[in-house]
Design a protein around this nucleic acid. Sequence first.
DNA 1: TTTATGACTTACCACTTGGTAAGTTGTCAA
DNA 2: TTGACAACTTACCAAGTGGTAAGTCATAAA
Lengths: 198, 198
Amino acid sequence: MKKDTNTKTALIEVAHKLFADRGYDGVSIADIAGELGITKQALLHHFGNKEKLYGKVLEGVSDRFGEIIQAHEGKGDTKREQFFSILHDLYEQMNTQKHDARLIMRELLENQPRIESKQKWYLRPFLEKLTELIREITVKEQLSSAEAFTRIYQILGAMNYFAISDPTLKKMFGKQTYNDVEQLFFNQLKQMYALDEQ
Amino acid sequence: MKKDTNTKTALIEVAHKLFADRGYDGVSIADIAGELGITKQALLHHFGNKEKLYGKVLEGVSDRFGEIIQAHEGKGDTKREQFFSILHDLYEQMNTQKHDARLIMRELLENQPRIESKQKWYLRPFLEKLTELIREITVKEQLSSAEAFTRIYQILGAMNYFAISDPTLKKMFGKQTYNDVEQLFFNQLKQMYALDEQ
DNA sequence: TTTATGACTTACCACTTGGTAAGTTGTCAA
DNA sequence: TTGACAACTTACCAAGTGGTAAGTCATAAA
């Protein structure tokens, strides 16, 4: 019965959504399996245990974000274009795949990392690449690497924070206001941090 | 035996820490009580149930942040000073009381709010006050309220994100780098968003 | 001195949790 | 046709969950 390699990917998808919304401890493997009308033992058959499933979910996040930076690696654009293009894709990714944004935030909150291993550090090359780029762009200012990193982290923080705030902001200020802000958000960020614009 | 009204506040303190670090579902009431050498039934005696204890913890966060804005309400400073002063206190609060920062972030992630009620909305007057202030400050630009709000939310997002990132960043780049960034962070934020500086 | 009350404890309880063990059943390669 | 294997299921289970019930014991008010 090979009908469903689908099942495995479907499980990861469901797990992705549920972990993002409710957190690792807020979701039972029975919940996840149940969403697909399977028993939890079927899930365990595919992944061995809960942590491994969670690991697969994180792997997905890691891959998607890794691809963004790679997609811009060799392109012949100017550094400046490359920088803003990466940022833009990042913004898009976070706001269309809110589950990814939520999972990243949740991982950041977990200081005793459940999965200490490799895949958590997809963030690092990301941060380093962007830090390097912003230094090359802001030639007039000659940013130290700490200053450059600080700037990057503020941008990323603002983006990620906004991406996860969507339900709260909608409830608090209404859908209309939220949409207005969403439209403005990226350009305003760009404007704020593009001090050296030529 | 009235020795310990302390116990009650001690429980809230411990719960505050644990909920912030591990999330609502990641902590059992037995864990919390155990930290003080009490049985969980003693805890239940004081708070009735887990959610009510959690509510008390949130109340604390709400109060502390509410005080910040109140402390600056009547002061005779200029709007600009008032604005940056509030922001600064906020930054301090988030970075000295990391548990508060973590709890706020966790609450933001919870879209099916455990405690739908009042205290969640302490954020709202906060956001509105700051939005109003920034509009009064940036007279040259004449920001729409959506633009002003966007700006505020970026600042708050950057701050909160950074505050919860501390263990991750320390592990990723070392304590030294982290301290460098921490020193720069607020001034750089201020600089970025103080476009209308006179 | 009684009575009430607050701060607990011990004893339970039903339910949920992640996980193991041992099947069953359909498919495909030898 | 057989035998392996993948994709499940049913049957369990020990440990932990939040919560109830019923007591113990010290203090303070009547």
